[in-house]
Simulated scan of single mutants.
Amino acid sequence: MYLGMYSFRGDPAELLAGHDRMLALLPAGQLELHLCLQTEDGIAVLDTCPNREVFDRFSSGQGFRELVAAAGLPRPEVQHLGEITSYVLPPGVAA
């Protein structure tokens, strides 16, 4: 599993609302591990894909650009974080 980060700069309250709109546009069950956090200058979204190739294709694709625009979000800065080698979830939570 590959982890990437999208940094959206701007008013955090507006960006968080846009992130909620973006999630509402996605089919249920599409995301495996997805985190959104408020930063000093906006929000950061950490998102997983099966591998880097899929992340590259998705993050640079027209579909992603259209999704971001439909949610009213600015174009993000995309950062490659790397392959996830392990993670721990609370008991009873499945990934």
Rank of each mutant, 00 (worst) to 15 (best):
G4A: 14
F64H: 12
M1S: 13
F8E: 04
S59Y: 06
F55T: 02
G72Y: 06
A24K: 08
P50S: 09
L46E: 01
R21A: 15
E77Y: 02
L15W: 04
M5I: 09
L37M: 12
P27H: 08
S59E: 05
A95E: 12
I43A: 07
L23S: 02
S7N: 05
P76F: 04
V93K: 03
Y87A: 10
G72S: 00
Y2V: 03
V93M: 13
D41W: 00
L73P: 02
H19D: 11
Q79R: 15
L15C: 09
R9M: 08
L81P: 04
E53A: 15
V45Q: 00
T39N: 01
Q62Y: 04
A28T: 04
Y6I: 06
D56E: 13
F58M: 07
L15A: 01
Y87C: 09
A70P: 04
F8L: 11
P90Q: 11
L35S: 01
G82Y: 08
H80W: 11
E40C: 01
A24M: 01
S60C: 01
L3H: 01
L81G: 05
D41S: 10
F58P: 03
M1A: 12
L46A: 06
R52I: 03
V68W: 07
F8C: 03
H34D: 12
Q38R: 15
L16D: 07
T39H: 03
E14H: 06
R57M: 05
P50R: 14
L33I: 12
G72F: 04
C36G: 08
A95H: 07
V54Q: 13
P27D: 12
A95M: 11
I43R: 05
E53T: 10
R52H: 14
D56Y: 04
T39D: 04
P76C: 02
D11Y: 02
M22N: 07
P74E: 00
G10A: 05
R65S: 13
L37I: 12
V88D: 03
F64M: 08
Y87I: 12
A44E: 12
L89A: 14
G29D: 03
S86D: 13
A13M: 08
L3R: 06
L89Y: 07
A24T: 04
V88E: 06
V78Y: 07
E66V: 03
A71G: 00
G42H: 02
V88K: 02
